[in-house]
Design a protein around this nucleic acid. Sequence first.
DNA 1: GAATAAATTGTTTTT
DNA 2: CAATTTATTC
Length: 748
Amino acid sequence: MDVSKLNPEQRKAVETTEGPVLILAGAGSGKTRTLTARVARLLEKGVPAWNILALTFTNKAAKEMKERIEAMVGESAADAWIMTFHSACARILRRDIEKLGYKRSFVIYDSDDQQSLLKDIVKRMGVDDKAFSPKSVSSLISDAKNHLILPAEWRDTHADDERSETIYNIYLEYETRLKALNALDFDDLLVKTLELMVEHPPVLEYYRNRFRYVMVDEYQDTNEVQYRLCQLLTKESQNLCVVGDDDQSIYSWRGADIHNILDFEKDFPNAVVIKLEQNYRSTANILDAANQVIAHNEQRKDKRLWTEEGEGEKIHTFCADDDRSEATWVANRIIELHKQGDAYQNMAVLYRVNAQSRQVEDMLVNSGIAYNVYGGTKFYDRREVRDVMAYLRVLANPADDMSLRRIINVPRRSIGDSTVSLLEEHARGNEMPLYSALTDMPEKLTSRPRKCVQEFAGLMTLLSVEMATMPLPEFVEDLMVRTGLRAQYENDPTDDAADRLKNMEEVVNAVRQFAAEHEGATLEEYLENVALITDMDTTKETDGHVTLMTMHSAKGLEFDNVFVIGMEENVFPSYRCVDDKVKLEEERRLCYVAMTRARKRLYLSRARQRMVFNQVNMNPPSRFLEEIPRRLMEDEWATRHERAFGKEPPPMRSTQKPQPRMIKRPDDPLNLQRSNPLGIPGVQKGISAVPQTAGFRAGDHVMHRKFGEGVVTDLVGTGVDARIRINFTAFGPKEFSLGLAPIVKMED
DNA sequence: GAATAAATTGTTTTT
DNA sequence: CAATTTATTC
């Protein structure tokens, strides 16, 4: 293991192999390199690979780490568990879940499955499905599970009203049904693993002995269950090494608790804390800007990333007329960069919500530029693909009524709703899965549907025999023929059907690839893989392709040129977060993550108006834009006097156009609402509620939107670069750019 | 029971 | 607007 390429802090992280270690790794600080080197070091010291557990959040991160470790030490790392939390839990459960009363053939329900189950429950309970939409209920349940709150506890900790009672009933029924279906949702994978460890000490003992060294990546994103699992596993060995960055915590909406990383030193008082603060990725300007933005957060560990890189280009900003011309601008810049010799794979367009990819896609298609969109509608979310999966799931786990119901009449085989209802009723009466009702039919069933069901039951029996005898890929191919799924689309001349057919063929390819990578793989293993894989993980041809993805998905990645689009209030930060201080700080962290993805050039764009919900919406520039010091930015209008479409620049003053919605700021003591609808960074014209450079002197009493009262101590520089230093009564001395800081002079 | 027409409804972010 | 759900007709 050659540590000479590491800096002193990184080296310390690699060499500290024993005891609790907290590595605070800023963006681009060589985190993965350090982590992989640490694993290599452990192996080199003679720690057997099977003693090592390295947990990540994404398959991509796991895969990368695994590959890099293998490149360093070769096959000797093969026995180490380097995988996501969810995969590790699935694997642990596959061994011992029978101790919890499930069967080992359990299936994993994704959020779609979860929601259709909830929908079914709500419908059967006869409650108002508007007030209890599957979406809202599923997030409540997920939230409860992530905090280890079982139905009974949920009821005890919530108001004693009708709504809570109903939710409790749904939650309870949901749990009961899942168990009957022999299915686990995503949260269950973690919760049940914890349950297994807590209630079955020998199991815990086994894994404690096995995993002597536990490492956790992106620790700031762990939720309570993951946290407890880590604590439990390392209680004896104390060998828990966590890596994270509180500034990059962007998953609290999924139960991630930032306190897990903030309180690590409390949990392990003897922890070695290592800070990786040198950034090897971005130019100084980009890093500086990102640092400035994140400095506006109150809830954070103080740190400052630095770099040896040169300043580089300024951050390019642009304000387009609408979302369409914003996309055109992006496409044009991409073309320009490409002409300069930058390859498309070095460019990424990042956005807040998946829907924003549409316009950019259109423009890239028009320009003939290849691209990959990550996220959004996933391959495995397509109807035809899910149909195939439903067949496979029923065969793997006949208790899966939900999947069976999905495919019992797909393709059409004249088993309609009324027949299914009869079968279901009968199955429920006899406390058996729906699948059993296919062969043990209720007497009420008349001869015609009876025959159809019989035929279907015969098909399923045939398939289960084939499943046991044929290699997996061939079996899947055969299944699509025997079930008639193929024929359904083959006889359809529309383009749509051709696409679907192609997707089904893609499933066979995926199975074939999986079988090739995992020798002797079973159907269960394949299904598990499918359930835990995301769109990010499907291998794509990246060469010559521009990357389009959400800022969330971009975490952990880096590109030479990064475009962040939709830098507007109510878009980014999202309208759902604008009124909540805590949520807003998470948005800001997301902004920090997005900005720090860029190595050489960062482009921030916004649109004056944008179509949202099928109506025109006008939003002021994102507050994050205003948190970047002006000296680091260069606006296209100001410098080039050009427009995406060669139109005249719009008037600087708003005429009768619809007024943008004002941002509500309950915490704004002076009511300094943004009155700068057309405000262009770099062209300081519109900020009118904020006093301009003139008028401040040392000794003046001022009021800041966030920091409250203070006294001006100093003024530095002139013009756009002018800065002001203020000593706040409550927050001490701070420095701001005079043009940007939301301060006003107080009347004495 | 199936095919078609009408109506409704929704947009964070993901394992 | 587009995709899904519900109503209507055959």
